[in-house]
Design a protein around this nucleic acid. Structure first.
Lengths: 193, 193, 193, 193
DNA sequence: CATGAATGAGGGTTCATTCAT
DNA sequence: AATGAATGAACCCTCATTCAT
């Protein structure tokens, strides 16, 4: 039933999705919904957090083992793209309308905050080590977060997202590396790519 | 009255905003709304397009006169930040929920498309001239668009957006210059900054 | 303006016709309407009575000079058909929805009453003179009224009412003469029946 | 609930009848109405057709077994009067305002058509057999339909319709027999009534 | 546990009516 | 006299939520 709810919410958005839509998609009765969830908003918030955690965990885990910022970015981006491509509903839900319901705005902010932190931490470390030029890492992290979101959004608007997924990930990684201040040189000399 | 509508829509989003909210904010009666606009959706679309055009025009104009990609980015970003800071409703409206109403989804896509083009064009030129490293300019443009949006969104969440506006613009510009592949040199040798 | 109102009311019916429809058709402003008439209902009632009187006068006048019941029926029917054909709006208004507005129901009843009287009086005289068989003249008059209304309604539904007008009048007259009990003879002679 | 709707519609007419009126009369809540019916118009059409079919069936059935035109008229009229007297709402609904809602106009026309056919068919047969004088049977059928409607309408306006029902039926039958061209003879000789 | 009929607050929209100009 | 912008009660309809079965 939560599967159904996730699908419906991500397709229609919070407001346009009706309880009836959800229970129909789940093949149960309205009453059943209210046996498991107190109300629509609570379900959405639960779904939102569940989903956000899933995405963040996946990215955090991908980033975790990597030694260099370069590898961290590559891995995090890949994880994001993979989820976007194989679980598009997850990304749609998180990117969809989440304002206009006060409580949701908070969750949304919290998600963004964590997403930003995911990138800011490695950046701070790299900055400390002098691997990247001086910069406002918070702002850079925000910018990266927004950049990734937007590219993924566009990717999912394509007719065949999977076909372009890996190219998109590569492009995003290169973008990120440049944006962060790493690797401007490698591209110049005798790099065939 | 359109002022009021813009405000209400940008604060609550399309669905949560009520005709009553709007007319109350405008200090008129319900009927007055329908005297000037055929319905809620039409007004929102109108407002959305008007607003989108305003933002895009401002950015395009800022970019127009500039000779170098560096200056174009700086000017475009500055224009964006200025609007965000002085007309926050404009940005909120454009960034708010616009899905779930079919017609709106189209407008939204169109806006994004134009926004992306605003950056892709200069990038293509710079690429031709060998001023930036080889890259998928379309993807870079998307990423920049998302990056700017996100940073501005965060800026507006601050208690005093105006205080940080210019710092944010500077940060974004640096981010963009790096992301695009300009400025690799200054960072290397004996840069005092 | 009353012309316009008559037209609009007869085309759309009382409820579906809006003040705006009427003033648009008349080429004046809404305020002007309320300068001349206190409200929609009053106008309709006025129009209804005016119109009813016009129709009844015409029929009464046609009937007036005639000596025999036969001629009276023929003349009254002809008058009715003529009005229906040359001023269809008059008939439409009178036959259209007039219930559901309490005051209108009364007028409607009054009109029917007078219409019925128009036929009952001559019938009573003819009955007195033994020209028609014994019958409940009130009921006969009602039936004739309904019969004429219905035939005229059907006539106006035709694509070219005028083309059939005279045939319809003749048919109605024959119907009425038979229904009243006149003309049994013509058919008898050598008709085996 | 459909009982209530029938009652309300027949009393107030389509436009003046409110969903609230109907649900109040039925003792349920607004939502309940929309749980059973898609909307006001659909319910009205359904009711109208149901009701029309009921009336037409009853008349057709009454007419069916009868051998002579005389008996057919008597039986059809009796059936009509009975329904009018015992289910006045049925007749009111069918005679009430049904214009101004395009779809309804069609149904109304269809009802009238069938009603007319109910009488035209027997008339054609009788005409073929030479039992009634030459006449435009279509027009005669229209006239009879209108006559019956009107007499019934007047009957229902009486304080005690049931008291007069049988007299009305008799009067209508006599009227119809004369109007059709039957029975001119019986009335002449020494028949006291 | 599950059901789905029932509820009614609330939303978008219409339109008769008013009144300052 | 005439205008038309402004009003707001009232309408139709939706949908989150409840509760008896």
């Amino acid at each position: 039933m939560m599967q159904a709810a996730l699908r419906v919410f991500s397709e229609k958005g919070y407001h346009a999705a009706t309880i009836r839509d959800i229970v129909d998609a789940a093949g149960v009765a309205v009453g059943t919904f209210y046996f498991y969830f107190p109300d629509k908003e609570t379900l959405f918030i639960y779904l939102y957090e569940e989903t956000a955690e899933f995405l963040l965990q996946a990215m955090a885990q991908a980033v975790a083992g990597k030694a260099t910022l370069e590898r961290q970015l590559a891995a995090g981006i890949e994880a994001f793209v993979n989820i976007a491509v194989y679980e598009p509903a997850v990304v749609s839900l998180l990117q969809g309308e989440a304002e206009s319901v006060p409580v949701l705005a908070e969750r949304r902010a919290a998600l963004r905050e964590t997403q930003v932190s995911t990138w800011q931490r490695p950046l701070d470390i790299a900055l400390d080590r002098g691997q990247i030029p001086p910069q406002n890492t918070r702002r850079t992290a925000e910018a990266l977060t927004g950049a990734f979101d937007e590219v993924v959004r566009n990717l999912l608007d394509q007719p065949e997202p999977r076909a372009e997924a890996s190219a998109a990930a590569t492009d995003m990684t290169h973008f990120a590396l440049r944006a962060v201040g790493l690797l401007p040189l490698p591209t110049t000399s005798d790099d065939p790519d």
